[in-house]
Amino acid sequence: MAEFLRSIPLFWAKVISIFLYLLLALWVITRPREFIYRGAPDGKGWRDLRWWAITLIGIQIFLYLIF
């Protein structure tokens, strides 16, 4: 098992982490709107936390692609 893990190229660490980020993004965008806005004083677009999360995930994927 240890031998097998050691044989995995480092490139796959990036692939796994980016795949996990994409999975998280998919989960985030499928959250219902009423859940996201619960407790918000109004329904303005900037309060949609899904976009906050997608922006954060996008920045992360960019960083992991370049480093």
Binding site: L20, L24, L49, A53, I57, Q60, L63, Y64, F67
Partner: peptide
């Protein structure tokens, strides 16, 4: 090197999103 930044990126951001959307409510 930059692997140290994992503590601020992979080791924080996804968990913060999950915390905000699942646990904190």
């Amino acid at each position: 090197g930059i692997a140290q930044a994992n503590y601020e990126w992979l080791g924080a951001i996804p968990a913060m999103i999950v915390s905000a959307l699942i646990i904190i409510p």
